[in-house]
């Protein structure tokens, strides 16, 4: 494990939630832009070897988003869903479906808190069930969402 300069906190909360916390050295208004302007989103959400082929978001209540990636072996996938609550630049709630499967989605709540001159981002991903969360984690559905078993403290793993 590498040491994080700006610690990333990731916790399994209850049976259905994953909570991720990360501090940034810039104010919420700026972080908000990076989260809601497609030309900026593309710059940090691209995955090595997986360019973003579609990046659209209408960050308003009733709006929606669609992020798609394609890989070297024709491995394409996308996340999409509705935006259900917005209070710029501090809060957004959206629902995220994987590859258009609307039978099971995660509700993602993103909060940007003022933290001195910076921002504390808290992202809560709520799945329909413990099984859905386990499946999401295990099949990379959360696409690079790191995982640490804070509440899942029963796992005998070294720190």
């Amino acid at each position: 494990m590498s040491l994080d300069l700006r610690p990333l906190q990731t916790v399994l909360d209850g049976d259905t939630d994953i909570v991720i916390r990360r501090d940034f050295a810039h104010p919420p208004a700026k972080v908000w832009r990076a989260l809601t302007e497609p030309q900026l989103i593309r710059q940090w959400m691209a995955i090595e070897g997986f360019p973003m082929t579609r990046c659209e978001i209408d960050p308003r209540v009733g709006g929606s988003f669609h992020y798609a990636w394609s890989g070297p072996d024709g491995n394409a996938f996308f996340f999409s869903g509705p935006v259900v609550a917005v209070s710029a630049p501090h809060h957004m709630t959206h629902v995220e479906y994987f590859n258009g499967d609307t039978s099971s989605g995660a509700t993602i709540t993103t909060d940007l808190e003022d933290q001195g001159s910076g921002t504390r981002m808290i992202m809560r991903m709520r799945y329909d069930s413990a099984e859905a969360r386990a499946a999401a984690i295990a099949t990379d559905m959360t696409d690079g969402m790191a995982e640490v078993y804070g509440k899942l403290d029963a796992l005998p793993i070294p720190d």
Partner: peptide, 27 residues
């Protein structure tokens, strides 16, 4: 998995560093 997520946030750090402050909404 954690490293992937952190790598993405570090790209976000870099992007934020490069963004013009005054272009952001008033804070």
């Amino acid at each position: 998995y954690r490293a992937l997520w952190e790598a993405q946030f570090q790209r976000l750090d870099d992007l934020l560093d490069s963004l013009d402050d005054q272009a952001a909404a008033p804070s």
